[in-house]
């Protein structure tokens, strides 16, 4: 019986395994192999250089700057997403009666940025942040700044604006999932807490947060991986500039591969990013498993 079930299992999972092998494992293996070659692809007669590309990566100041930018970007965006999503979700949950019938409308409006493509979102923010754009013009008109400011051209501010654009665009997704998680928390828990005289703050720390912790952890991991892979918004707004202040790993890898045509080096850079993502995923799995065991 067991043997029959195993055979059946293999039969059902085989198509998926073959599909994954063709679409994921094979290209991944190809990238890892290419990372050991100089310039082009192994099949185009490139030179095998073993770990030389990895040596270059960690001696490359631009790569290290991209790594630092990515860390700042990922941590800031993820933290802001989670904080704002929880704040918004709690606000909506607590004030449903006040917001009342327009709650659906407000939620509908909030979701709009998420529905836009990254290209459109970038175009909107370029109109706002251009030297002669809305923001500068309003500030000059109000007399708050004497001259038009070049927001995306200032290395001290450019990454901050990229973080703001990303948060603005993706927050609705995080809000919706957090709000959905919040809806599943039983109101009886809050009623009991109220009877026991717990303050709102105590209720939040002791009931709300523990109950939605799993959702938040999943969202955090997803966000970290998405942010590491983020390319469009930077490419369309600053292209990684000025002076590399917004150049993240994705942009760096793209430039190495498609501008410098150094596919071997770009593949090695890709492997480094993959390792970083894998470590994050492993930490998540470990923490997730531990908390499941506790529960």
């Amino acid at each position: 019986m067991i043997r029959k079930n195993t055979k059946l299992g293999i039969m059902f999972t085989a198509p998926l395994i073959i599909f994954l092998a063709l679409t994921t494992f094979f290209p991944l293996l190809h990238v890892i192999i290419t990372g050991f070659y100089r310039n082009y692809l192994p099949e185009r007669g490139a030179v095998f250089v073993f770990f030389e590309n990895y040596k270059i990566i960690f001696q490359d100041q631009d790569f290290m700057q991209a790594l630092a930018n990515t860390a700042v970007y990922v941590l800031s965006v993820t933290a802001l997403h989670l904080l704002l999503a929880v704040a918004l979700a709690v606000f909506f949950d607590r004030h449903t009666q006040i917001i009342g019938k327009i709650a659906y409308l407000v939620r509908g409006i909030i979701i709009i940025p998420w529905l836009l493509s990254w290209t459109v979102a970038a175009a909107i923010w370029l109109l706002i942040l251009n030297p002669s754009g809305v923001l500068s013009s309003v500030l000059v008109y109000l007399g708050l700044t004497p001259r038009l400011h070049i927001w995306l051209g200032d290395p001290d501010y450019a990454l901050t604006w990229i973080i703001i654009i990303t948060v603005w665009k993706s927050l609705p997704f995080f809000f919706m999932l957090t709000y959905a998680a919040l809806m599943t928390v039983s109101s009886e828990l809050y009623e009991s807490a109220n009877i026991d005289g717990a303050s709102h703050w105590q209720q939040f720390w002791s009931i709300t947060l523990p109950m939605i912790k799993q959702t938040l952890m999943t969202l955090a991991v997803l966000d970290i991986v998405w942010c590491i892979r983020q390319y469009e918004v930077i490419a369309f707004t600053t292209g990684g500039g000025p002076l590399g202040s917004t150049r993240t790993l994705s942009i760096k890898i793209y430039q190495t591969a498609f501008e410098n045509l150094r596919f071997g080096l770009a593949s090695a850079q890709g492997v480094v990013v993959l390792l970083i993502c894998s470590v994050i995923a492993m930490i998540y799995i470990k923490v997730h498993t531990q908390s499941e065991v506790k529960q």
Partner: peptide, 9 residues
């Protein structure tokens, strides 16, 4: 020249 040439494509 318009300000912000480093942000204009």
């Amino acid at each position: 020249a318009t300000p912000g040439s480093i942000t204009i494509d």
